[in-house]
Simulated scan of single mutants.
Amino acid sequence: MNLMKHLSENIEEYLETIYRLSDSRKPVTTTDISREMKIAPASVTQMLKKLDSNGYVKYSPYRGAVLTDRGYRIARRITRKHRLLERFLHDVLGIKRERIHRQACEMEHSLSDDAERALCHLLNMPGECPDEKPIPACEFKFQTCEECIEMKDADIEEIGCRDENLKSLTEMDENQSGRVSFIRGDYRVVRRLMDMGITIGAPLTMIKRAPLSGPIEVEIRGSRVALGRDIADNVFIETEG
């Protein structure tokens, strides 16, 4: 099974690039995309119009492109595969960091969802790539990684995928609310969060998102809790808007 097998590698690269360049899903300019992908601006504009007509982005001349929910989901999936592959190439195969990005780019498009899941298990559910960029959550219908491991022999066709797009706590906007939907990590991570009152299904509101590596402050069950980015990246929310 491969949830993106119908898409061309070129489309996936564009969506992944927009995802990587965007901040809270704000528009990404044609110039930025052109510079990042090393493609002529006119060609980028032509592709953005195509992506807009196919429902992957909303494109406005002079403003740029923003991912739709459909495009955002695809971009997160391919970004997840890319960053998992970077971890594998660096941690398991010992390939030098300056070479792993290009190699992962070549491999991400052909990595099946079965292989992605097995790779995640092999790497012990990593939260970030070697460059310390967060790895998006998987799309499978699990509430914790422990559930996924317990059902490691289950066919992912039967497991199915979530209907909603999830955001990690570090991706949420201030004053945005939602419910905890997925927690990444082993039982120790889950236990640590439970001790803070952060459990699956609990309503949560983002209070303050400090810049860079600062803490995340949320309100949950009537109390305010401060979380380090290392753990906030592993709490995923089904947002309300």
Results as ranks from 00 to 15, higher is better:
residue 67 L to G: 06
residue 112 S to E: 02
residue 102 R to L: 11
residue 147 E to D: 07
residue 216 I to P: 11
residue 13 E to V: 01
residue 99 R to T: 04
residue 10 N to A: 11
residue 62 Y to L: 12
residue 71 G to T: 01
residue 38 K to L: 09
residue 16 E to T: 10
residue 105 C to Q: 15
residue 185 G to R: 01
residue 141 K to M: 14
residue 109 H to E: 03
residue 81 K to D: 14
residue 102 R to C: 06
residue 76 R to D: 14
residue 99 R to A: 14
residue 161 C to L: 13
residue 217 E to S: 04
residue 117 R to K: 11
residue 150 E to C: 12
residue 176 Q to C: 08
residue 116 E to S: 09
residue 28 V to Y: 00
residue 49 K to M: 00
residue 172 M to E: 06
residue 68 T to G: 01
residue 210 A to I: 07
residue 94 G to C: 04
residue 106 E to G: 05
residue 229 R to I: 06
residue 55 G to E: 07
residue 110 S to M: 01
residue 121 H to Q: 07
residue 156 I to G: 07
residue 159 I to H: 08
residue 165 N to I: 15
residue 107 M to L: 08
residue 116 E to P: 11
residue 53 S to E: 01
residue 142 F to S: 04
residue 10 N to M: 10
residue 122 L to V: 13
residue 227 L to C: 01
residue 22 S to K: 06
residue 173 D to E: 13
residue 138 C to P: 11
residue 16 E to P: 02
residue 42 A to Y: 01
residue 137 A to P: 15
residue 71 G to F: 09
residue 15 L to W: 10
residue 82 H to S: 08
residue 175 N to S: 15
residue 108 E to V: 00
residue 216 I to C: 10
residue 3 L to I: 12
residue 41 P to Y: 10
residue 228 G to P: 05
residue 3 L to G: 08
residue 2 N to I: 08
residue 7 L to Y: 10
residue 13 E to P: 14
residue 239 T to A: 10
residue 69 D to C: 03
residue 228 G to S: 02
residue 44 V to P: 04
residue 75 A to L: 13
residue 129 C to P: 12
residue 9 E to C: 15
residue 111 L to G: 00
residue 93 L to V: 15
residue 122 L to S: 09
residue 113 D to T: 00
residue 101 H to K: 10
residue 185 G to L: 13
residue 117 R to H: 06
residue 146 E to G: 09
residue 222 G to K: 08
residue 17 T to R: 07
residue 179 R to S: 14
residue 236 F to R: 04
residue 26 K to C: 13
residue 77 R to W: 09
residue 73 R to W: 14
residue 166 L to Y: 00
residue 240 E to W: 07
residue 118 A to T: 04
residue 192 R to D: 04
residue 40 A to I: 07
residue 221 R to Q: 13
residue 208 K to F: 13
residue 210 A to R: 07
residue 141 K to G: 11
residue 188 R to S: 05
residue 225 V to G: 00
residue 135 I to P: 07
residue 22 S to T: 15
residue 97 R to G: 10
residue 80 R to E: 06
residue 21 L to T: 08
residue 172 M to C: 10
residue 101 H to I: 12
residue 20 R to G: 00
residue 90 H to M: 10
residue 34 S to V: 02
residue 164 E to A: 10
residue 19 Y to T: 02
residue 15 L to Y: 09
residue 58 K to R: 05
residue 57 V to N: 06
residue 157 E to N: 12
residue 26 K to M: 12
residue 33 I to W: 05
residue 179 R to E: 14
